[in-house]
């Protein structure tokens, strides 16, 4: 299963998902959030929801010089190995949608685990969980 942005036009920009993502690890605030909601050049135009798309062949992992981002077998997306990561930031540059977030304290990437915790805190059905197979059929 992967986290999917189903309908951005229904997003009201409440950012409840962002707070949920930090709370997932028991924290309050936004420092640990791996999902972002921002307006598309002003709120009158609506929002974009930026989160890992679980690419089948993730560019972030391909550019990692130490192999600290491990593609998740058959599920898409990556796992971060903090001890292997040197904090070079290449992964952040490689992700063209900006879904590699950064932990300023540890100087290492934070990437969505597709756990789905945030889905329960989106009151408008913008977020959902999807099977990878279904996604492949669509594409």
């Amino acid at each position: 299963m992967r986290l999917t942005v189903l309908e951005t036009e229904k997003c009201v920009g409440c950012q409840s998902c962002m707070f949920a993502c930090s709370r997932r690890v028991g924290e309050a605030g936004l420092a640990r959030s791996c999902i972002g909601v921002r307006s598309i050049g002003g709120m009158e135009r609506g929002f974009s929801v930026i989160v890992c798309r679980a690419c089948a062949d993730p560019p972030c992992a391909k550019v990692c010089p130490t192999g600290a981002l491990v593609p998740r077998e058959g599920r898409g997306g990556v796992r971060v190995l903090p001890d292997t990561c040197i904090g070079c930031g290449h992964c952040r540059e490689a992700c063209i949608i900006g879904a590699v977030y950064w932990d300023d304290e540890t100087n290492k990437p934070m990437i969505c685990l597709h756990c789905g915790y945030c889905v329960d805190f989106c009151p408008y059905g913008v977020l959902g969980m999807q099977k990878r197979e279904a996604e492949n059929v669509e594409e």
């Binding site: 409840s16 028991g26 309050a28 605030g29 420092a31």
Partner: peptide, 25 residues
């Protein structure tokens, strides 16, 4: 800004949050 805030009890925090959120929605 994007920072982290301390809470007195992580488990209780999540529980209470869920309660408030559910009522609000």
């Amino acid at each position: 800004g994007k920072s982290s805030l301390p809470v007195s009890d992580k488990k209780e925090y999540r529980k209470l949050y869920d309660e408030v959120y559910k009522t609000a929605v």
